Computed example of a mutant assay.
Amino acid sequence: MAVVEDDVQTNAASSRRGLAGASARRLVLRRVLLAPAILLAATFSVFVMVDLSPHDPALATLGPFASAEDRLRYAEEHGLNDPLPLRFGRFLVALAHLDLGESLIRPEPVIELISRALPVSLQLMVLAVTLAVVFALVLGVLAAWKEGRWIDRVISGVAALLHAAPDFWLGLLFIQVFALGLGVVPSGGYTPPSAGFTPWLSSMIGPAVTLALGSMAVLTRVIRASMADELARDYVITARGAGLSWPVVLFRNVFRNALITPVTVLGIIVGSLISGAVLVESVFNIPGMGTLLVAGVNTGDLGVVRGVVIVAAAAFILANLVVDLLYLALSPKSAEVSGQ
């Protein structure tokens, strides 16, 4: 009889795992299929907002002294007077061929300008995310482990201050202290990785640290709260009472369970990093997507503005898709809840 009950329990457990796996696969497929629809909606929104801009493409191309006849001829030749759906349809066809149009100011296609700026911004983003995650993990776990003590209060206080500080102010402060004061890093500019790892890191560490500080502060507070909640659970007290060491308890159970909430916050943090990069790149004179966007806005180069924003939106959607998949990997049971 006991054998039969064991078989029933084993089959029930296998059935639950199978259902959870099927739910996870359906949810993953749904998220993957939903991403292009979200990107299409974002692209349409960007196209409409740029179309409603007060900047005149004909004026930006021909110059401020162009006659009304020349501007009208330019608009007719480039289809600027066509209905919005027709213009958006042409834009989508071109976008499918990776054609974002021509820059109105520079004699180059927009895609070539972005192809030079995007790798620089990606390097900055990867370095900033790495710094934010590593330091947030260390500080968040330490604060939770020493909950209520002075080190917890210091870490929480510093995190609150960094969260409130504007990125551009932190960037200027970094330049003032480490570049102009101590002279350990350059005050701005970009050195490609091909020139060597040390020169590249010297040029990128300032903007990366500046960009990472605010996100690190948010992530530290989230990890601290999540870890403190998990460390107070009964299974942790039982494991410690059974003689298991802190490293074993932390890395075998607590860490995995406590990271579920911070991972969901990471998607929002990526969005804040993308928007913060605009100011940080301008402060440190980094030739990335943010600098390209600011130049496009200042000169009325609507093709560049539209292209940069669409690529940034695609990067944000892709990053959030990766975060969603990581969340499902950490918490497969969430697929069952989401699928209901």
Rank of each mutant, 00 (worst) to 15 (best):
I111W: 09
V50A: 08
F135H: 09
I155E: 00
V185F: 06
I205Y: 05
F135E: 09
M204R: 02
F44W: 12
A217G: 02
V110Q: 01
P119L: 03
L59D: 10
P83T: 07
L92W: 03
L33G: 10
D7E: 14
D7L: 15
L98Q: 08
G140P: 05
L182W: 14
P193V: 06
V46S: 03
R26S: 10
N257L: 11
A13M: 11
A335V: 01
S338Y: 10
V265Y: 15
A329F: 14
V93Y: 08
L72I: 13
G140D: 10
R233V: 05
S15D: 14
W145Q: 11
V138M: 13
A179Y: 00
Q176A: 15
A179D: 06
L59P: 00
S275N: 12
A22G: 12
A24I: 10
E69I: 09
E147R: 15
D70Q: 15
L59T: 11
V236F: 01
G148M: 11
A22S: 12
V3K: 15
A22L: 14
I114W: 03
R306G: 03
L161P: 00
A66C: 05
V158N: 02
W169N: 07
A165R: 04
S115N: 07
F44T: 13
G307A: 02
G288S: 06
L273I: 10
V8R: 15
A212Y: 06
A2Q: 14
F255A: 11
V154R: 05
L98P: 01
L72D: 15
L122M: 13
G288M: 06
F284H: 04
A66L: 02
V8F: 13
F251L: 12
M289L: 13
R153A: 10
V120K: 05
I260N: 05
G276S: 07
A66P: 06
P57N: 04
L325G: 01
V305Y: 00
R306D: 02
V309D: 00
S338H: 10
V8G: 09
A179T: 07
A117R: 04
F316C: 02
L219E: 08
V270S: 00
L321N: 03
L231E: 04
G241P: 02
A329E: 10
A225G: 11
E69Q: 14
F135W: 13
W145V: 14
D99R: 00
W150H: 08
E5I: 11
V304Y: 03
F91K: 04
I286T: 11
D7K: 14
Y74A: 07
R233E: 07
V222Q: 07
S156C: 10
E281I: 04
M227I: 08
I317C: 11
L142Q: 10
